[in-house]
Design a protein around this nucleic acid. Structure first.
Length: 152
DNA sequence: GCCAACGTTGGC
DNA sequence: GCCAACGTTGGC
């Protein structure tokens, strides 16, 4: 059992969208480090859903991993913006997992707030210039956020 | 919308 | 293999 944080721009896909659909294939990851994290995910792992590129970026709710990693079909679709002409079907370059909705937070736990929590002091999340869209969360960080959050 | 920070690409 | 150019991310 592991924990993760996954970023999304709510304009493209929000926590509410996930809540409405229940479960969604998390496609479009095109960064090797993020992909490697995807590949180590297991069914049932916990996820913090994070909204980026909004006035108050931060963790907005909980989700969970609902599949193991498997090839992202959009890499083979020439009409997709995620098409990767260099990826070979016999050795796919990009993977995805299914993500299921779990809960919404009554209030966003903002990045500004998280920066002040000692448990996040060493997290790439609070580092300037960090661009990782998927990052691991420690058990301590998970517990700290859950203790602070009001689930809806 | 701006732009710093970063990852990737490709010429050499 | 270096590194400039380019594209993208994401806070502000």
């Amino acid at each position: 059992m592991a924990y993760w944080l996954m970023k999304t721009e709510p304009e493209a896909f929000s926590l509410d969208d996930l809540a409405a659909r229940g479960k969604e294939p998390w496609d479009g990851i095109r960064n090797y480090q993020a992909r490697n994290f995807l590949r180590s995910m297991q069914f049932g792992d916990g996820i913090f859903l994070y909204h980026s590129r909004v006035p108050v970026p931060g963790i907005v709710g909980l989700a969970e991993v609902r599949s193991s990693a498997h090839p992202d079909p959009t890499q083979f679709d020439p009409r997709s913006k995620y098409f990767d002409p260099n990826s070979r079907p016999e050795q796919p370059r990009w993977d995805l997992v299914d993500v299921g909705f779990r809960a919404r937070f009554a209030k966003v736990i903002s990045l500004e707030e998280l920066r002040q929590w000692p448990v996040f002091a060493d997290s790439p999340l609070v580092r300037k210039g960090n661009r990782l869209s998927i990052l691991p969360i420690s058990e301590t960080q998970w517990a700290a956020v859950l203790e602070h959050a009001e689930l809806v």
